[in-house]
């Protein structure tokens, strides 16, 4: 069991190892490779150490994009998590109504990202868009291409509309998995609706909500297609998030070294925050009081 050499078990993990190597490790190492060198052309490269990292970390525009990104992800989580739970609580529990509402709720999830952007461009156009025209007819000049606040509002609406259903589905599954006896006991104990939610439903949903929170954080932190299609990062730099800025550096300016260093920092930030969220949620309500 403790045998490391000549153990046939290694052959059993080999397929997974190869798969992970080609899908994750080798591409990642390539990025590491780029981030440490200055490449002028095929065969012409110079090892530069941590120079790209220093450059990237002191880039003012990157800092701005990072704060913008945190603001965006934070708002997304603050809106989508409670809203998703609320909708899941209100959904019918069984029968045909439950099936119909599940399908309706899941519809936005089936639409491709870039199509979503296009839909919302048209939807919010001040001249012919249903939303844009309606809001303009009320007397406010709403235009997501001209005003950064309008661009943010549109982007948030789009994001919430697109991804809250995921939180709803997960929360709904979590709620349905709670045995009926818990609710019966709560009734007998005279618990209010709020107490039932706080002491039974919410703790029992912890597992699925952790997943929802992690998925929504990672996804919103990596957001690219939607702002790219909707605003292209503008107006000005108002919606230039990390990924948009990264693509500008890597593809627009073809600065592969800084872009690679940027990618690695980006990756580490997501990893760190996902780990933090996971730890916090695992420990909530579990540990003994000190």
């Amino acid at each position: 069991m403790d045998k490391w050499k000549d153990n046939k078990a290694w052959f059993l993990v080999l397929p997974v190892f190869i798969l992970v190597a080609f899908s994750a490790i080798i591409p990642l190492m390539t990025v590491v490779n780029y981030s440490l060198q200055d490449i002028f052309g095929p065969g012409q490269r110079v090892f530069v150490g941590t120079e790209w990292f220093q450059e990237v970390l002191s880039d003012k525009r990157l800092h701005d994009a990072l704060w913008r990104q945190f603001l965006f992800s934070g708002l997304v989580l603050l809106i989508e998590m409670p809203l998703g739970i609320l909708i899941a609580l209100m959904m019918p529990k069984k029968g045909w109504a439950a099936s119909v509402s599940l399908v309706l709720i899941a519809l936005p999830l089936l639409i491709p990202w870039n199509v979503i952007g296009t839909i919302w461009i048209i939807f919010t156009r001040p001249d012919i868009g249903l939303f844009g025209a309606a809001i303009n007819s009320l007397g406010t000049a709403f235009d997501h291409t001209a005003r950064s606040s309008d661009a943010w509002i549109t982007l948030m609406l789009m994001e919430v509309w697109h991804w809250t259903p995921l939180v709803v589905l997960l929360a709904y599954a979590g709620l349905r998995a709670i045995p009926e006896a818990y609710f019966q006991a709560a009734k007998i104990d005279g618990a209010s609706t709020w107490a039932t939610f706080w002491y039974i439903q919410l703790p029992k949903m912890r597992g699925v909500l952790t997943i929802a929170l992690l998925l929504r954080f990672m996804d919103s932190f990596l957001i690219y297609a939607e702002p790219f299609v909707l605003t292209g990062g503008g107006p000005g730099n108002a919606t230039t998030f990390l990924s948009i800025y990264l693509v500008k550096i890597a593809v627009g300016q073809f600065d592969l070294g800084p872009a690679a260093a940027f990618s690695l920092v980006y990756f580490l930030i997501i990893l760190l925050f996902s780990w933090l969220f996971y730890q916090v949620l695992q420990n909530v309500g579990k540990g003994e009081k000190a």
């Binding site: 045995p179 006896a181 818990y182 002491y199 039974i200 703790p203 309500g285």
Partner: peptide, 9 residues
């Protein structure tokens, strides 16, 4: 009930 019903937290 058949199985223990508790407020876990």
């Amino acid at each position: 009930f058949q199985f223990p019903v508790l407020y876990d937290t």
